[in-house]
């Protein structure tokens, strides 16, 4: 288990990488293509999602497009 800050919320999760985390959070795979993920303030490009190994205390941001003006 890792202690992560996910979208500002402290969580203990059993996930080592971004794909692990998205599965753990039950985000449907069909929606992954419109997501962006950052780890500790650095945007992780899609092709590197599986390569980034989380460490205890990492702050993860997961965002997507919403309605906006």
């Amino acid at each position: 288990m890792l202690n992560l800050i996910i979208n500002g919320e402290k969580r203990s999760v059993n996930a080592q990488t971004i794909p692990d985390l998205l599965q753990h959070e039950k985000v449907p795979q069909a929606h992954w293509q419109a997501l962006a993920v950052a780890c500790n303030g650095k945007v992780i490009t899609r092709d590197a999602w599986a390569d980034v190994a989380f460490k205890d205390g990492d702050a993860i941001e997961i965002v997507k497009p919403f309605v906006g003006g």
Partner: peptide
């Protein structure tokens, strides 16, 4: 469009 955090409790419709 705006860019916002996803809702971890569901509602993933984009």
């Amino acid at each position: 469009v705006a860019i916002r955090r996803i809702n971890l409790q569901g509602q993933h419709l984009s």
